[in-house]
């Protein structure tokens, strides 16, 4: 029996930024778009990544793709939300661990540099793929 497909999980901050988790056939994918410069991203991105994490615990895929290529800019407070997502995966209470494979655009120089820092932070969980 084919399992009933999940609805995507969405987040939106006005016109500045949006994000969604899609779980179709194959690897689950989180796609982020726009400028992440919210003054309190823990109220926007935090709940989104918590929902994504809860859903991915039900998924069997060992990896989730995190597409940053359409993110123009991310402030350090939003970057912290990615750190906290990783901490959720690392938490002893997590039912399973999955890896995050970040897709980055090397033309936006902050992307590979920031993801490199995440790889140093959690080498067992973070991978990076360059789009160009």
């Amino acid at each position: 029996m084919t399992p009933f497909p999940h609805r995507p999980i969405l987040v939106q901050d006005g016109t500045a930024f949006s994000g969604r988790l899609d779980e179709g056939v194959g690897t689950p994918s989180v796609h982020l778009v726009g400028t992440l410069s919210h003054p309190a991203p823990q109220t926007v991105l935090g709940p989104f990544f918590e929902q994504v994490h809860a859903r991915l615990l039900e998924n069997t895929s060992p990896v989730v793709e995190v597409d940053l290529r359409d993110v123009v800019y991310m402030n350090s407070a939003s970057f912290k939300s990615l750190i906290e997502w990783i901490c959720l995966i690392q938490s002893p209470g997590a039912l399973r661990r999955y890896r995050l494979c970040f897709l980055v655009d090397r033309k936006r120089r902050w992307q590979p540099t920031s993801v490199h820092a995440l790889r140093c932070f959690a080498p067992e969980l973070v991978e990076m793929t360059s789009a160009n």
Partner: peptide, 18 residues
């Protein structure tokens, strides 16, 4: 230093990463 700040930021108010 950035990694040390990253390790200390989770769960605290503000990021302190800038």
């Amino acid at each position: 230093i950035f990694l040390e700040l990253m390790r200390g930021t989770a769960g605290k108010p503000g990021s302190g990463l800038g």
